[in-house]
Design a protein around this nucleic acid. Structure first.
Lengths: 222, 222
DNA sequence: AACGCTGATAACAAAATGATAACAGAAGGG
DNA sequence: CCCTTCTGTTATCATTTTGTTATCAGCGTT
């Protein structure tokens, strides 16, 4: 499980983020100021730091520089309209930034994106005879590579990050297709499930991996 | 059925939203100002509050803070371009926000998403040899999974949330079937009870789990 | 014991849901 | 520009769920 460090002094926000991010499968630490943040980067070696630039104690940029020095990727949290900060933030080497207010879903998507980009060969998930190299974005069955399209991969990753959980069709549509507020046909999901099954299942007629939960959605077998 | 509180002083909008949201299976209350809103949060305990920040009477942020204090999640309705408000809104602990004008479908999607996130009874209930993972939405007896249909699951969850309580047939029919104001035959409940017993009971002929309380209704044994 | 009431059961019809195949436009590479 | 792949749609089909009806069984009362 990826370890995130929240560098943020608004404790209410920290609490909510921690809660939400843990449901998304992350492990969260927090630091309220620069001193704590630096200590946490050293001792905890997080996979990613989320840094609020408007820290009361210390300076977000300094934290960012330190984290980068230690090879920890950074996403900046900025107050919206605070353009100077975002520019400087990216110049400082932040891997991404997100303006408040952000939708939690969007934050998660950015986090995953940065982790994918930076974590190199970090993770490898095995599921039966399937093997997923989350760093490189490759999927294998045995030693034969399986080629998934971008959306197929995204959908499959969402299942992987929620193994065992019954995911509603709505939730999946939201997650994979509703990023831009565009709505796609309900059947699109059905079709993608079929395509995934055809590529991933032993026998797509008799799915053992992605199970249908009628009236609700689908579930990736653990 | 989830109870939503609309805190909005544009009565035409309230009317349209109420109408639309009820077709989507929500129950709507409304409050035109801060005073009403606070009262409604106390007395009605809604599952979610939709708060317009540009209230004439009172202040949307105050309502939000109060709601959060009572554990009621909040979605902000903001006039578009009203950036300052949205920033402060999320800092205040709103769970999401949506800018006017919004598409009703998008609103519903946000509502569902927040409800999913917050109502996360990510717990596990054990009842004799039955085990229910309410987070994942799965039911097991021993280590064998039991597959319930959507309505069967809903009915069972209602029993679980009211363990030991004698529930009248009327109450159950209301809760599970009367979401759209459609009435179903009285016997429908009886049939569903039978189906649940067949799937959940050791011996459905001799129910130990879901007991019949003759003349009144049913009761889930604790 | 006979009746009436309530709930149980079985069998059935209808509606909803998901699976599938075939297709068309979009995007991208050469 | 052509070709391929990706993406999303429509139409059709199969299955399961859902709700009804009809009949049956048990209990309490008279």
């Amino acid at each position: 499980m990826e370890k995130l460090l929240l560098v943020e002094d608004d404790s209410a926000l920290v609490r909510r983020l921690t809660e939400y991010l843990s449901t998304e499968g992350f492990h969260c630490l927090s630091a309220g100021g620069q001193t704590q943040a630096v200590a946490a980067i050293d001792t905890e070696r997080p996979d990613l730091a989320l840094v609020d630039i408007t820290l009361a104690e210390g300076n977000g940029f300094a934290v960012c520089a330190y984290a980068r020095g230690k090879g920890v990727p950074v996403i900046f949290l900025t107050a919206s309209g605070d353009e100077l900060s975002t520019v400087t933030g990216l110049d400082m080497g932040a891997d991404d930034y997100i303006a408040k207010p952000f939708r939690p879903k969007e934050l998660v998507s950015r986090i995953r994106s940065v982790l994918r980009r930076t974590s190199g060969n970090h993770g490898e998930i095995t599921l039966g005879e399937l093997r997923v190299d989350t760093g490189k974005g490759l999927v294998f069955r045995g030693d034969r590579q399986i080629f998934l399209s971008a959306l197929e991969y995204r959908l499959f990753m969402f299942f992987l990050n929620h193994r065992g959980q019954v995911l509603t069709r709505e939730q999946l549509l939201d997650e994979i297709w509703d990023s831009a507020g565009e709505y796609v046909s309900d059947n699109t999901l059905t079709v993608y499930i079929k395509r995934l099954r055809e590529k991933l299942e032993e026998d797509s007629q008799d799915p053992r991996l992605i199970l249908t939960v009628r009236g609700i959605g689908y579930q990736l077998k653990e």
